[in-house]
Each structure stands twice: as C-alpha cells, then as structure tokens.
C-alpha cells in the first residue's frame, strides 16, 4: 500500500510539474494572473509540498534535523499551494469583490500563523495526527480546496447550460469540470483524514484508508492531466461515450 501511495504521489508530482511549468510559461506570454497563480499552486504543492513531506517521513528515523527541515519546507509548500490556489479563486471568480479580497487576506494570515505553530509543535511522524494544531492546519487547507471545488463545479454547470445557446465551447466546459473534480478529490482527501483524526480523538475506530486516499490521488492526478494537458479535455469521451450509455 505504501508503494501504491508513493506511485500516486510521484504521478501527481510529475503531472503537477508539467502543468505548473506550462501555466507559468503561458503567463509570461499572456501577462495574466490566473495562469501564474494556478501554475505556481501546482508547483508549490506537487514539487515542494508532497516530495519534501515524504522525504521528511523517510529521513525521520535516520537524521532528525534534516527530517525536520524537510518537514518545514514540505508543510510550507502545501500551505503555499493552498494560498496560491485561493488567490487564483479570488482573481478568477471574484476579481472585484471586496469581501473576497478581505476573506483571502484574513485566510492567508491565519494560514501563515497555523503553519508556524504547526511546524513548531509537530513532527514528521504519525504522532502529528494527534495534534489539534495539525488538524486545524489541515482543516484550513480543506476550506481553500472546498471553495475552489464549489466555484469550479458551479461554473462548469453554468457553462454547460450556455452550450445549448452556442455561448460556450464544450472543451472549455470540460476543462472547468475536470479542474473542479481535481479540487473535490483533494478536498475529500483532507476531509477523510480530518474525520479519522476526529474519530481517533473520540476513541472511535477510524476509517482512514490509504487505498481511498490513493484512489482520490489518482482521480486528482488524472483530472488535472485532462483539464490542463490535453487538447480536447476529454470532450469526445464524455460527450459521445457517456451520452451513448445514458441513451442506451
């Protein structure tokens, strides 16, 4: 199971690297904020967050100082990815909303504070799951991905309606839909982990399953790939194959 989880994380990191670099390079040409923020969010999470956290766990038994340093970098990468992702939500979905800007600022400051406390009070071993600070840190990141998931899926639904009037391209609708699926997969990973922590604290049998977490990771990786790295964003499959199944 550990091997499967490692393979999933490696796959996600590679896809995040490819998509992140693609979007950052694109932002240099377009001079637009959304591609830069989404690209950096993928790079921070996929290339800093996940790899350094895994490195910290592996190093913990042999070199504690190095492990703690890697843990700090990894957690900063995960938190940074969440901040960049939420900033992309504000820029894309609520660019002129003062309330959204205030929410982003307050959320970002709280994220930074939780990150500092979380790094100082926890270690890269299973004991961190018993820490309330670590749970709060995870919960805070969950809110970011949940906001993005709701926004992306709601907008994909609206774009789908526009298609009937010829006012939206199905490829664009699908890209938004698969981005939403990525965010909801990540949200569910956080939610399952948090529920397990809460159940463990209450003395109940947890339902944390590495297989479920890994499966959600596979879905997130695949959806990211389809949304950002394919030409048709799966339109031919979702519209013809699923349509035929629905009719048949």
């Amino acid at each position: 199971m550990q091997l499967l989880s490692l393979v999933v994380v490696c796959a996600y990191s590679l896809i995040a690297l490819g998509v992140g670099v693609k979007l950052v390079l694109m932002s240099r040409q377009t001079r637009r904020g959304p591609e830069l923020l989404v690209g950096l969010a993928f790079l921070a999470g996929g290339m800093v967050g996940y790899p350094f956290n895994i490195a910290a766990t592996v190093l913990w038994g042999s070199n504690a100082d190095l492990a703690l340093a890697a843990y700090a970098v990894g957690q900063t990468g995960m938190a940074g990815s969440a901040v960049l992702a939420l900033a992309s939500w504000q820029v894309m979905f609520a660019p002129s909303s003062r309330r959204a800007r205030v929410f982003l600022c307050v959320w970002g400051v709280a994220m930074a504070a939780l990150l500092v406390v979380g790094i100082r009070t926890t270690q890269p071993d299973p004991s961190r799951f018993a820490s309330s600070w670590y749970a709060l840190l995870l919960f805070w990141q969950l809110t970011c991905y949940a906001v993005l998931a709701v926004a992306a899926l709601h907008h994909a639904f609206m774009l789908h309606r526009r298609e009937a009037l010829g006012l939206s391209d199905p490829v664009v609708t699908n890209r938004m839909l698969f981005w939403g699926i990525t965010e909801i997969s990540v949200s569910l990973q956080y939610l399952i982990t948090l529920c397990s922590i809460a159940m463990a604290k209450l003395g109940m049998a947890g339902f944390f399953s590495p297989l479920i977490i890994a499966s959600l990771g596979v879905i997130a990786a695949a959806a990211t790939y389809v949304a950002f790295a394919t030409r048709t964003a799966g339109v031919s499959w979702t519209r013809t194959e699923l349509g035929a199944r629905a009719e048949g």
Binding site: R32, M92, S168, D169, V171, V172, R175, A227, R231, A233
Partner: peptide, 9 residues
C-alpha cells in the same frame, strides 16, 4: 472565470 481555459485552447 473560464478565460484561462479559453486561452489554454
């Protein structure tokens, strides 16, 4: 919001 995905195409 969909402008990024339009540009990607």
């Amino acid at each position: 919001p969909e402008a990024l995905f339009v540009r990607m195409g």
